[in-house]
């Protein structure tokens, strides 16, 4: 299980659309639009799949790029799906 804090950067006009699409993805929780260009996102996924989640975000229309601000991997946690 990996948890990542991400900054998704998009052009000003694209931000609402991108935020809406991000909300649709099951692994993500969004935390609002900031500084007129970033959407703060927390991704939660099995550690082996986190990269693909980030790739999927990058491929969304309107997304310029994604920064990783925080990453933690908790593969040994009891009761947490791997």
């Amino acid at each position: 299980m990996a948890i990542a804090g991400l900054l998704v950067q998009a052009g000003k006009e694209d931000l609402p659309g991108v935020e809406a699409r991000l909300k649709e993805l099951p692994e993500l929780s969004t935390y609002g639009i900031h500084k007129e260009q970033y959407i703060v996102v927390v991704a939660e996924a099995p550690s082996g799949q986190l990269e693909q989640v980030v790739e999927r975000i990058n491929r969304l229309p309107g997304v310029l790029t994604t920064y990783t601000a925080y990453l933690t991997v908790e593969d040994e946690l009891p009761g947490v799906p791997d």
Binding site: Q9, G11, K12, Q37, L64, T65, Y67
Partner: peptide, 10 residues
């Protein structure tokens, strides 16, 4: 993609 010295920023 963030490579290089300068932070990618609008």
């Amino acid at each position: 993609d963030g490579k290089g010295e300068v932070v990618f920023a609008l």
